[in-house]
Protein backbone atom coordinates (compact mmCIF):
# COMPACT_ATOMS: atom_id res chain seq x y z
CA UNK A 1 0.00 0.00 0.00
CA UNK A 2 2.91 2.34 0.53
CA UNK A 3 3.47 1.89 -3.19
CA UNK A 4 0.10 3.51 -3.85
CA UNK A 5 1.09 6.43 -1.65
CA UNK A 6 4.30 6.87 -3.61
CA UNK A 7 2.39 6.85 -6.87
CA UNK A 8 0.02 9.53 -5.59
CA UNK A 9 2.91 11.66 -4.33
CA UNK A 10 4.71 11.37 -7.64
CA UNK A 11 1.54 12.49 -9.38
CA UNK A 12 1.29 15.54 -7.13
CA UNK A 13 4.89 16.43 -7.89
CA UNK A 14 4.27 16.32 -11.61
CA UNK A 15 1.28 18.65 -11.16
CA UNK A 16 3.57 20.98 -9.23
CA UNK A 17 5.76 21.12 -12.31
CA UNK A 18 2.81 22.42 -14.31
CA UNK A 19 2.12 25.20 -11.87
CA UNK A 20 5.76 26.18 -11.89
CA UNK A 21 5.35 27.48 -15.43
CA UNK A 22 4.80 30.91 -13.88
CA UNK A 23 8.45 30.90 -12.88
CA UNK A 24 9.33 33.96 -14.96
CA UNK A 25 7.31 36.16 -12.58
CA UNK A 26 9.11 38.35 -10.08
CA UNK A 27 8.53 37.00 -6.57
CA UNK A 28 7.46 39.27 -3.74
CA UNK A 29 6.36 38.59 -0.18
CA UNK A 30 3.07 40.19 0.72
CA UNK A 31 3.03 42.40 3.82
CA UNK A 32 0.12 41.75 6.17
CA UNK A 33 0.67 44.27 9.00
CA UNK A 34 -1.78 47.16 9.26
CA UNK A 35 0.70 50.06 8.73
CA UNK A 36 1.89 48.48 5.45
CA UNK A 37 -1.68 47.87 4.33
CA UNK A 38 -2.68 51.45 5.19
CA UNK A 39 0.28 52.72 3.16
CA UNK A 40 -0.73 50.41 0.32
CA UNK A 41 -4.27 51.79 0.47
CA UNK A 42 -2.93 55.34 0.12
CA UNK A 43 -0.68 54.40 -2.79
CA UNK A 44 -3.59 52.68 -4.49
CA UNK A 45 -5.89 55.67 -3.98
CA UNK A 46 -3.24 57.93 -5.51
CA UNK A 47 -2.04 55.72 -8.38
CA UNK A 48 -4.93 53.42 -9.37
CA UNK A 49 -8.25 54.59 -8.03
CA UNK A 50 -8.88 57.33 -10.57
CA UNK A 51 -9.59 54.61 -13.16
CA UNK A 52 -10.09 51.38 -11.16
CA UNK A 53 -12.90 50.60 -8.73
CA UNK A 54 -12.81 48.23 -5.76
CA UNK A 55 -16.48 47.54 -5.38
CA UNK A 56 -16.19 45.07 -2.51
CA UNK A 57 -14.14 47.46 -0.36
CA UNK A 58 -15.66 50.55 1.28
CA UNK A 59 -14.24 53.62 3.00
CA UNK A 60 -14.98 52.20 6.42
CA UNK A 61 -12.64 49.27 5.59
CA UNK A 62 -9.85 51.78 4.94
CA UNK A 63 -10.45 53.32 8.37
CA UNK A 64 -10.25 49.87 9.95
CA UNK A 65 -6.76 49.51 8.45
CA UNK A 66 -5.76 52.71 10.21
CA UNK A 67 -5.74 55.07 7.24
CA UNK A 68 -5.91 58.69 8.42
CA UNK A 69 -9.58 59.79 8.82
CA UNK A 70 -8.95 63.14 7.15
CA UNK A 71 -7.49 61.49 4.07
CA UNK A 72 -10.45 59.13 3.84
CA UNK A 73 -12.85 62.08 4.17
CA UNK A 74 -10.95 63.82 1.41
CA UNK A 75 -11.31 60.83 -0.92
CA UNK A 76 -14.95 60.13 -0.20
CA UNK A 77 -16.21 63.72 -0.39
CA UNK A 78 -19.95 63.60 0.27
CA UNK A 79 -20.25 59.82 -0.09
CA UNK A 80 -21.17 57.92 3.08
CA UNK A 81 -18.51 55.81 4.82
CA UNK A 82 -20.24 52.63 3.69
CA UNK A 83 -20.04 53.39 -0.02
CA UNK A 84 -17.69 51.22 -2.10
CA UNK A 85 -14.50 52.58 -3.66
CA UNK A 86 -15.88 53.34 -7.11
CA UNK A 87 -13.60 55.08 -9.59
CA UNK A 88 -14.31 58.64 -10.57
CA UNK A 89 -14.61 57.80 -14.25
CA UNK A 90 -17.91 56.75 -15.79
CA UNK A 91 -18.00 53.69 -18.04
CA UNK A 92 -18.65 55.94 -21.04
CA UNK A 93 -15.48 57.91 -20.29
CA UNK A 94 -13.60 54.65 -19.89
CA UNK A 95 -14.77 53.40 -23.26
CA UNK A 96 -13.84 56.70 -24.90
CA UNK A 97 -10.37 56.72 -23.35
CA UNK A 98 -9.29 53.07 -23.29
CA UNK A 99 -11.95 51.33 -25.42
CA UNK A 100 -12.57 49.07 -22.40
CA UNK A 101 -13.63 49.40 -18.78
CA UNK A 102 -10.64 49.03 -16.42
CA UNK A 103 -11.25 45.87 -14.37
CA UNK A 104 -12.37 45.99 -10.75
CA UNK A 105 -9.39 45.41 -8.46
CA UNK A 106 -11.15 43.88 -5.41
CA UNK A 107 -10.19 40.33 -6.38
CA UNK A 108 -7.29 41.10 -8.71
CA UNK A 109 -4.65 39.52 -6.46
CA UNK A 110 -6.47 36.17 -6.80
CA UNK A 111 -7.85 36.46 -10.31
CA UNK A 112 -4.67 35.75 -12.29
CA UNK A 113 -2.38 32.72 -12.46
CA UNK A 114 0.51 33.64 -10.21
CA UNK A 115 -1.66 35.82 -7.95
CA UNK A 116 0.19 38.63 -6.18
CA UNK A 117 3.42 37.86 -8.00
CA UNK A 118 1.66 38.37 -11.31
CA UNK A 119 0.24 41.78 -10.35
CA UNK A 120 3.60 42.88 -8.96
CA UNK A 121 5.53 41.71 -12.02
CA UNK A 122 2.99 43.41 -14.24
CA UNK A 123 3.23 46.75 -12.40
CA UNK A 124 7.02 46.81 -12.61
CA UNK A 125 7.04 45.16 -16.04
CA UNK A 126 6.83 48.40 -18.04
CA UNK A 127 9.82 49.36 -20.18
CA UNK A 128 10.64 51.85 -22.91
CA UNK A 129 11.58 50.17 -26.16
CA UNK A 130 14.29 51.42 -28.54
CA UNK A 131 11.59 53.16 -30.60
CA UNK A 132 10.44 55.11 -27.54
CA UNK A 133 7.17 53.18 -27.22
CA UNK A 134 6.24 51.86 -23.77
CA UNK A 135 5.61 48.13 -23.51
CA UNK A 136 5.00 45.54 -20.79
CA UNK A 137 6.93 42.28 -20.39
CA UNK A 138 4.16 40.42 -18.57
CA UNK A 139 1.07 41.59 -20.42
CA UNK A 140 2.11 42.98 -23.83
CA UNK A 141 -1.46 43.73 -24.98
CA UNK A 142 -2.24 45.88 -21.94
CA UNK A 143 -4.09 49.13 -22.51
CA UNK A 144 -3.13 50.59 -19.14
CA UNK A 145 -0.53 53.38 -19.30
CA UNK A 146 2.46 52.81 -16.98
CA UNK A 147 0.87 53.84 -13.65
CA UNK A 148 4.07 54.19 -11.62
CA UNK A 149 6.19 55.67 -14.41
CA UNK A 150 8.72 52.87 -13.96
CA UNK A 151 9.42 52.73 -17.70
CA UNK A 152 10.91 56.21 -17.38
CA UNK A 153 12.95 55.52 -14.26
CA UNK A 154 16.43 56.90 -14.74
CA UNK A 155 18.45 55.40 -11.90
CA UNK A 156 18.39 52.39 -9.61
CA UNK A 157 17.24 54.35 -6.54
CA UNK A 158 14.20 55.73 -8.36
CA UNK A 159 13.41 52.27 -9.68
CA UNK A 160 13.64 50.60 -6.30
CA UNK A 161 11.38 53.30 -4.82
CA UNK A 162 8.78 52.47 -7.45
CA UNK A 163 9.17 48.76 -6.74
CA UNK A 164 8.44 49.48 -3.09
CA UNK A 165 5.28 51.35 -4.10
CA UNK A 166 4.23 48.41 -6.29
CA UNK A 167 4.85 46.04 -3.38
CA UNK A 168 2.73 48.09 -1.04
CA UNK A 169 -0.09 48.34 -3.59
CA UNK A 170 -0.01 44.58 -4.18
CA UNK A 171 0.01 43.90 -0.44
CA UNK A 172 -3.12 45.99 -0.12
CA UNK A 173 -4.73 44.22 -3.09
CA UNK A 174 -3.89 40.86 -1.58
CA UNK A 175 -5.61 41.89 1.65
CA UNK A 176 -8.57 43.26 -0.30
CA UNK A 177 -9.03 40.00 -2.18
CA UNK A 178 -9.49 38.08 1.08
CA UNK A 179 -9.78 40.37 4.12
CA UNK A 180 -10.25 37.45 6.52
CA UNK A 181 -7.03 35.66 5.54
CA UNK A 182 -5.17 36.49 8.74
CA UNK A 183 -8.19 35.46 10.88
CA UNK A 184 -8.35 32.26 8.91
CA UNK A 185 -4.71 31.37 9.45
CA UNK A 186 -4.89 32.22 13.16
CA UNK A 187 -7.99 30.03 13.62
CA UNK A 188 -6.26 27.36 11.54
CA UNK A 189 -3.43 27.00 14.08
CA UNK A 190 -5.93 26.50 16.91
CA UNK A 191 -7.93 23.96 14.88
CA UNK A 192 -4.78 22.02 13.94
CA UNK A 193 -3.63 22.00 17.56
CA UNK A 194 -7.00 20.76 18.73
CA UNK A 195 -7.21 18.07 16.06
CA UNK A 196 -3.71 16.87 16.92
CA UNK A 197 -4.69 16.40 20.57
CA UNK A 198 -8.00 14.72 19.68
CA UNK A 199 -6.42 12.38 17.14
CA UNK A 200 -3.70 11.39 19.60
CA UNK A 201 -6.34 10.58 22.21
CA UNK A 202 -8.34 8.60 19.65
CA UNK A 203 -5.20 6.72 18.66
CA UNK A 204 -4.51 5.58 22.22
CA UNK A 205 -8.17 4.80 22.84
CA UNK A 206 -8.20 2.71 19.69
CA UNK A 207 -5.11 0.84 20.87
CA UNK A 208 -6.64 0.29 24.28
CA UNK A 209 -9.93 -1.04 22.91
CA UNK A 210 -8.34 -3.31 20.31
CA UNK A 211 -5.89 -4.72 22.85
CA UNK A 212 -8.85 -6.61 24.40
CA UNK A 213 -9.04 -8.79 21.31
CA UNK A 214 -5.66 -10.43 21.80
Amino acid sequence: MSKLLKVVLLGCLSMQAVWASEAKLEKMSVATDKPSLARGAEDLMNDCHSCHSLKYINYRDLLSLGVDKQKVDGWRGDAPLDSPLMSQMSEADDMATFAKVPPDLSLMARARDGGSNYVYSYLIGYYTGPDGVTGNHIFPETKMPDPLGISGATDAAQRSGMQDTAKSIVSFLSWASDPHESDRIRLGYYVMGYLFVLTTLLYFLKKQIWSRLK
Binding site: Y194, L195, V197, L198, L201, L202, F204, L205, Q208
Partner: peptide
Protein backbone atom coordinates in the same frame (compact mmCIF):
# COMPACT_ATOMS: atom_id res chain seq x y z
CA UNK B 1 -10.21 7.79 32.18
CA UNK B 2 -8.97 7.79 28.59
CA UNK B 3 -12.46 7.17 27.23
CA UNK B 4 -13.96 9.96 29.34
CA UNK B 5 -11.24 12.42 28.37
CA UNK B 6 -11.62 11.63 24.67
CA UNK B 7 -15.39 11.96 24.88
CA UNK B 8 -15.12 15.36 26.56
CA UNK B 9 -12.50 16.65 24.10
CA UNK B 10 -14.44 15.33 21.11
CA UNK B 11 -17.70 16.75 22.43
CA UNK B 12 -16.09 20.16 22.91
CA UNK B 13 -14.89 20.04 19.30
CA UNK B 14 -18.36 19.22 18.00
CA UNK B 15 -19.82 22.08 20.08
CA UNK B 16 -17.16 24.50 18.83
Amino acid sequence: FLLKLTTVVGGAGVAA
